[in-house]
């Protein structure tokens, strides 16, 4: 009985800390793997893993970094899986062409195409900094690396993006007109 009450209390404490991060976490995961079902799985799994180790987190202020770190790692694993799966998924590729006419899908696929040129670690750091507004120090904690490593990753990611967008067969100006 007491154990059950402890579990309920633990879940309540966890949810208090998790709730403000939920939206950002969902968008972060989705922007890395671009698949809503996969994103849903990863967010669920992240929440569960964080909950199971919630007692081990001594400094609750680092909870956010901890959760994003788990999500980043899970997303990386799923992304690799997606890449392997894509090699054999001929049917999906055919279907994609059929519904690619909508503006939003085109925007997403173009954005994704550019982002896919960047290695996963650099992409993760870039998204955390540019899109989700984390500070360098927070990214250090999430990525578990030094400040200089984070800065380097972001710089390299931007360089690769610039190189791709400048040399892309479809000029980014045309893409811009589609997006706008």
């Amino acid at each position: 009985m007491e154990q059950n009450q402890d579990s309920v209390q633990k879940q309540h404490d966890f949810m208090v800390l998790y709730k403000p991060l939920h939206n950002r976490l969902c968008k972060f995961v989705h922007s890395m793997i671009w698949d809503k079902e996969d994103a849903k799985d990863i967010v669920n799994e992240t929440a569960l893993q964080a909950f199971e180790r919630f007692d081990q987190i001594k400094d609750k202020e680092k909870f956010m970094s901890y959760v994003f770190s788990i999500a980043g790692n899970l997303a990386k694993r799923r992304y690799k899986l997606q890449k392997v799966k894509a090699l054999f998924d001929w049917v999906k590729a055919d279907n994609q062409e059929a519904w690619q006419h909508s503006e939003q899908t085109l925007t997403q696929s173009e954005l994704r195409k550019a982002l896919d040129q960047v290695p996963f670690k650099q992409r993760r750091a870039l998204l955390l900094f540019e899109v989700f507004g984390f500070s360098y120090n927070e990214i250090c904690t999430i990525e578990n690396c030094s400040l200089s490593a984070v800065k380097t990753r972001i710089f390299q990611a931007k360089t690769k993006l610039r190189h791709y967008l400048a040399n892309d067969e479809v000029p980014f100006g045309q893409l811009k007109s589609v997006i706008v």
């Binding site: 989705h30 922007s31 849903k40 997403q108 993006l161 967008l165 980014f172």
Partner: peptide, 26 residues
Amino acid sequence: VEEDYLDRLKKHVHQDEVGIEMQEIE
């Protein structure tokens, strides 16, 4: 060009709803 791209990416990501409810997580 990459800053322009990142602005649009940011806008797209924040507009797009993933659709995962808190209740589902709980």
